[in-house]
């Protein structure tokens, strides 16, 4: 690394001041740009979304009010995302640990590479794969769940005959979020100072104890950040859900295996946008605003948890 050996001459000190000033200003201006961008988007959303309050029930999919519509959609969005995160959390931690700590290098590298690639698969392709491969494969599982766990409100049935339910959509969402979450997790795990790990091992810790004592606490904030990014993708995902989910209109349904699925906001926008009249567009943008707020609340909570629980190594 760079090391300055001698006392710098005077003009270099001046240069350094200018350098510092320029650099910090540039950084500050960039940060302020974020505010400008966001203000633009927010103003735009509000102007275009507020006329939605004038909408009549037949522009609201027969829901009584705008709030009832948005509420039902929020329910579906959260439901699908919860399913996705229930799957993503254990899998991404496992996958991240395998790549960073368990697998030998010659396996870990190609696997990490493969996972990165999957982040680029367009959601349309995830949707196609979901319809062609995943839904038929998961359909028997739907029937099994209804037969054996039917006493739970989630598996009330009747099971969908095509498997294109919010459960399948959740699995697709999980797979879409998985590459992003895993890629960050593994970087975070790999950042654990080597000295900590070796100290733990030298003290006779097993591998799991070493991970529990050094890797996980050190990476906690990063892990939460990774999961949040994944959740962000799951919440806002449009095309894959619109294609995989067999949802019509807007209903609130706890049942995750029936074909009468709850719909998600993003898919609702995608499905309705094409043929929308001006007021309907406002309704859709208003729904977008609701999604925006939901994602924000989730992010904010997550950020708060992350900063509260940081353990500095």
């Amino acid at each position: 690394m760079t090391a300055v050996r001698e006392e710098p001459p005077v003009q270099e000190v001046a240069g350094r001041r200018i350098g510092d000033a320029v650099f910090s200003r540039a950084a500050l201006v960039s940060s302020l740009l974020v505010i400008v961008f966001l203000a633009g988007v927010a103003v735009f959303l509000l102007i275009k979304g507020l006329p939605a309050f004038d909408a009549e029930p037949d522009q609201l999919n027969e829901r009584s009010s705008l709030w009832s519509l948005v509420g039902a959609l929020l329910f579906g969005t959260v439901l699908a995302s919860i399913i996705a995160m229930l799957i993503v959390t254990p899998l991404s931690i496992g996958l991240g640990l395998v790549i960073s700590h368990y697998a030998p290098r010659r396996i870990a590298r190609p696997v990490g590479f493969l996972v990165d690639l999957l982040a680029a698969v367009p959601s349309v392709v995830f949707g196609l794969w979901g319809i062609i491969v995943l839904a038929p494969y998961l359909q028997p599982m739907h029937e099994w769940l209804v037969d054996n766990l039917g006493w739970l409100p989630f598996f009330d049935g009747p099971a969908s005959t095509t498997g294109r339910t919010i459960l399948t959509a959740g699995v697709v969402l999980a797979l879409m979020a998985l590459p992003i979450v895993t890629a960050i997790m593994r970087e975070v795990f790999a950042q654990t100072p080597r000295a900590h790990e070796e100290a733990a091992l030298a003290l006779g810790a097993t591998r799991w104890e070493m991970i529990r004592m050094t890797v996980l606490p050190y990476g906690r904030s990063g892990m939460v950040a990774a999961l949040l990014l994944g959740l962000g993708r799951a919440l806002g995902e449009t095309m894959a859900v619109a294609m995989v989910l067999s949802a019509t209109g807007v209903v609130v349904n706890w049942d995750v295996v029936s074909s009468q699925s709850s719909n998600t906001i993003a898919a609702y926008i995608a499905l309705g946008y094409k043929e929308a009249s001006p007021i309907k567009v406002s309704v859709l943008i208003f729904a977008g605003l609701a999604l925006f707020l939901l994602t924000f609340v989730v992010n904010f909570l997550g950020r708060w948890i992350a900063t509260r629980g940081v353990v500095k190594g």
């Binding site: 999919n61 062609i132 005959t161 095509t162 619109a242 989910l245 067999s246 019509t248 074909s259 043929e275």
Partner: peptide, 28 residues
């Protein structure tokens, strides 16, 4: 313009979506 919720049945996105579902599943 949007299929009524209480009529039941499965749904597909777009013409190609409907065709896809009918092609992939029997008795549709």
């Amino acid at each position: 313009e949007t299929w009524p919720t209480d009529a039941g049945g499965e749904a597909g996105n777009g013409t190609s979506g409907v065709v896809q579902v009918v092609t992939e599943n029997e008795n549709t």
